[in-house]
């Protein structure tokens, strides 16, 4: 990693590594923001004559300069998470590890943090981010590895992963159909795309279909429904997302 052996040169690697791992609770709430960073500056072996300046710069970068001398216990969750990011950036790391950095944040704080991550990436640092939020991965990542049961099952750019489904849109259908006609209905809808999910709930048939063009699939569905005396209750069309890729690859819904 970074040109070092991870076992023999662990210290050399840790010197160039920043990490956001356990979120806001990993801070010392009875210390001020500045005191938290002073402690970690010492742990990172930062020269004492550089510490104060570096801490001021980092606090400025995460918009916490005005609250530098307040106890962390007085901070909001978003501010604490920004301070955790500041701590990770303290050693100017070549590699930054972010473990679900936006969990528990309100939308505004999450967006702010994501913008900071993009800034870090634009500075030329490598960012390794784990997340269950597929939109976040899509927005922030140049390459995404989908991990299932500890194994990488896909590794590509967001666009490449979506292309791997060989479809551009997802159509979700809800139909009221006589039970005996379900199989025939599904078979004929499959002519217009790939049926990736099928279940019955409260007498309604729910289908998820991946297709190249919803404009072509929807008329087909309506025709098929008419011929088997089924009623189309709902049609939703969305572009293929990373969540669809994830489910397609792992066969499971998110957060199971």
């Amino acid at each position: 990693m970074l040109g070092h052996d991870v076992v023999r040169d662990a210290r050399a690697i840790r010197r160039r590594l920043g990490a956001v791992l356990s979120g806001e609770r990993s801070l010392y709430w009875k210390l001020t923001a500045r005191e938290n960073l002073e402690y970690f500056a010492a742990l990172y072996h930062m020269p004492p004559n550089e510490t104060a300046t570096r801490i001021s710069e980092i606090l400025e970068a995460v918009h916490l300069a005005e609250r530098a001398d307040d106890y962390v216990e007085k901070f909001s969750t978003g501010m604490r998470q920004r301070l955790v990011l500041a701590r990770a950036l303290l050693p100017a790391p070549a590699l930054l590890l972010l473990d679900e950095p936006t969990v528990g944040l309100d939308p505004q704080a999450a967006r702010d943090l994501r913008e900071r991550v993009l800034q870090v990436r634009d500075e030329g640092r490598t960012v390794v981010l784990t997340t269950h939020y597929m939109e976040e991965a899509d927005q922030l990542c140049d390459r995404i590895a989908i991990v299932d049961h500890g194994r990488i099952v896909a590794l590509d750019t967001p666009a490449g992963l979506k292309r791997s489904l060989k479809a551009t849109e997802v159509v979700r259908l809800e139909l009221d159909a006589p039970a005996a006609t379900d199989a025939a209905l599904v078979e004929r809808v499959a002519a217009g795309g790939t049926v990736t999910h099928r279940d019955c709930e409260n007498g309604s048939l729910h289908l998820t279909v991946h297709c190249d063009s919803a404009r072509e699939l929807v008329p087909l569905v309506i025709d098929v429904a008419r011929t088997v005396s089924a009623e189309v209750r709902n049609i939703a069309v969305q572009p293929i997302s990373l969540e669809d890729v994830f489910i397609s690859l792992t066969g499971r819904a998110l957060r199971e």
Binding site: G23, S26, Y28, F40, H45
Partner: peptide, 18 residues
């Protein structure tokens, strides 16, 4: 328990110092 142990162990400081 606080969740800071991993962050501390990611720094180059010796474990014995910590």
């Amino acid at each position: 328990i606080r969740g800071s142990l991993e962050a501390i162990f990611m720094t180059p400081a010796s474990r014995l110092v910590i």
